[in-house]
Nucleic acid binder design. Sequence first.
DNA 1: ACCTATTATGTAAAGACTTTTCGTAAGGTC
DNA 2: GACCTTACGAAAAGTCTTTACATAATAGGT
Lengths: 395, 395
Amino acid sequence: MTEERPAGTPVLRRMNRAAVLDAVRRRAPEPVRVAELARLTELTRPTVAQAVEDLLAAGWLRQVAPQQATVGRPATRFSLNGRAAPVLALDVGPHTVTAGIADLAGERLALIRRPVGRRGARHLLEAVDEATGAALAAAGLAAEQIAAVTAATPGIVEVATGRVLFAPSVPGWPEIDLAGRLRARFRCAVTVENDANLAALAAVRQHTGAGTLLAVQWGERLGAGVVIDGRLHRGAGQAGEIGFIRPIGDLPGPAGDGRGPLERAIGAGAIVDLARRRAAGHPESGLARATDAAAVFAAAADGDPTAVEVVDRVAAIFAEAIAPAVLVLSPHAIVIGGGIARAGAVLLDAVARHLADLTLTPPSVELSELAEGTVLTGAIQLALDEVWRDTLAGC
Amino acid sequence: MTEERPAGTPVLRRMNRAAVLDAVRRRAPEPVRVAELARLTELTRPTVAQAVEDLLAAGWLRQVAPQQATVGRPATRFSLNGRAAPVLALDVGPHTVTAGIADLAGERLALIRRPVGRRGARHLLEAVDEATGAALAAAGLAAEQIAAVTAATPGIVEVATGRVLFAPSVPGWPEIDLAGRLRARFRCAVTVENDANLAALAAVRQHTGAGTLLAVQWGERLGAGVVIDGRLHRGAGQAGEIGFIRPIGDLPGPAGDGRGPLERAIGAGAIVDLARRRAAGHPESGLARATDAAAVFAAAADGDPTAVEVVDRVAAIFAEAIAPAVLVLSPHAIVIGGGIARAGAVLLDAVARHLADLTLTPPSVELSELAEGTVLTGAIQLALDEVWRDTLAGC
DNA sequence: ACCTATTATGTAAAGACTTTTCGTAAGGTC
DNA sequence: GACCTTACGAAAAGTCTTTACATAATAGGT
């Protein structure tokens, strides 16, 4: 239900303003002419002109130089005024904090990475403050100018309040009220969201935009984001926690480090362990010396039979673990990102093969093309979505 | 994205008409006064009066008798004109075809059940035609007056085209173009949808209306519908096919009857088989004589230890099977309907207990309150949704 | 230097709604 | 029958969009 609250003619003007602004956004970063906007919005030219005038006055648009060398009177052209509503995105990882600032058109204005000195919630928070300040300085902005903030954090997040409920990788993190601190510093919408969810959002936007997608982040830990028609599905609050799926077979001993069963079975480290164990009986394989998952996948790609077997086993466990979810959700595609994604086709093919066996019409299995900064990209996107939603509703 | 195409003032009037009609619908079946509508829609009284006048002229509303015994001048009251857009719903089961006709307000105008003479697609189709005709006659309507048709069928349905891709329970069914035949007979929107999905829709509307819900239909077969914020989630087209989840443990021999692994493991028949096998070693249990699943659950409710064990085992298999989907989807609740739902609390508690073990914050597990006709109710709801969507958009 | 074709912008009048405001109608109660 | 309460009706005002027409700015030709 769209739940519109219609009223008098002023509502019309608001709607038209929003439609014009939306059209400019879609055209960004290219400047647009009034006549072009009229065509895009299917409004008449005077109406668009009126809306543009309003938007210029409100600072959403700015006039850019007219195009040279054209027949007829040069058209005045307009672009989004990026400075109108820059957004701040934070990727709060256990070891690194990244802060990015982007303008309305998605243009990056600043990008700051800060290592976290020592492990622990307090040091992490310090790094967040520092990175935030540095990013603001680099972009030449004051905190008051930021129009939306999105912070990505590991763990399970109660998005409505911004509280982190469970974050095994950072001791003491749930006790810190990150959202509260950010809200105190910024007088705008602040969203705290699970990092895998945001990575999913970024990966999916890259992908198609529509449909149902399951975007898996696979590294030392395993998380996933469910994106339906371009929007994050959150369910009761912890959608996508695939790391806690209990895989078939016996588990490596309970580590008690907060990792879920599937993470203990086929997380990056577990893959190395598995490879080492298998290689013990096969001295001709180079796997015994493998120190990271990438080496295992490389060996498999080279045709090392033991490595191929290991990859196949890993893929089988993964496929069996998510098959029920695939049957229930029926995603159009599964996008795999994270450190493991660098494994390439070896893993992908094996996963697809096993899934084909376990589902009715298996979804396509693909790799995310985004390497670094996927989480930050997703955070920026969510923040921009927020701004656009508010803006288009109430500008 | 709401994708509104704003324009001149006539658009305003359309929007207001739609808002008023929507308000009347929400108030249905109670008649409404103009002043009440003004309050509900937050429009002024003259505007509402104008809209009501239009809607009366278009036949969407009708005037009803003013309320007696009131202070002040009696208000003229209006109701939905059910005859304006009746919908037809069909539940095409392997053994029975049910046809229902409902008016805009959801009031049932006709309900016809027809047994299917002999198994097979041809006889099924005959029964559909017959039931449809009888329902139309009973409601005193011609086919041209029907505003939307929804047909529920077992199997996997490609909703966009209305083709049934896979329907093991009715031989030859996928070759029949049910949607095409209905479209030829009715000049309105025709939707063909999986029966479990429609049952889910009905069960969920009963429930809360918002949030993410997984509605399981559990009988001889197993299906589920995913409902997110009141709307059916279809994914790539076969969301909710939980019958094909492969459960842990060894399967009863492949039946080759098109049933999925989970159905073979814990479908109604399989539960009886399991009980019989367990009872073989325990002659004191009455389970050996159980002929249907209900008897097994009844025995468990009575405290028969063997029966309790069987129920627990069934619940465990079910919980393990759907746990990954629960983790990915994070539903607010799981609603269990279908024949097995009559088992009551025994099964429910066992499922909840096992799920608690396998998920992070387990959803509540509940029984659907709808007994007979759940599928038909859902079909009517979907058809009405269709009508309202079209109507509110373009009346 | 001037003129014309071409494209873009500006503006005023008309038309369509909603809103506001005030007057009237239709009941009951005392 | 007077009075109170609630509902209905109609006219005037205000806000937008639309339509139609006039004007501005540039390139290229004469």
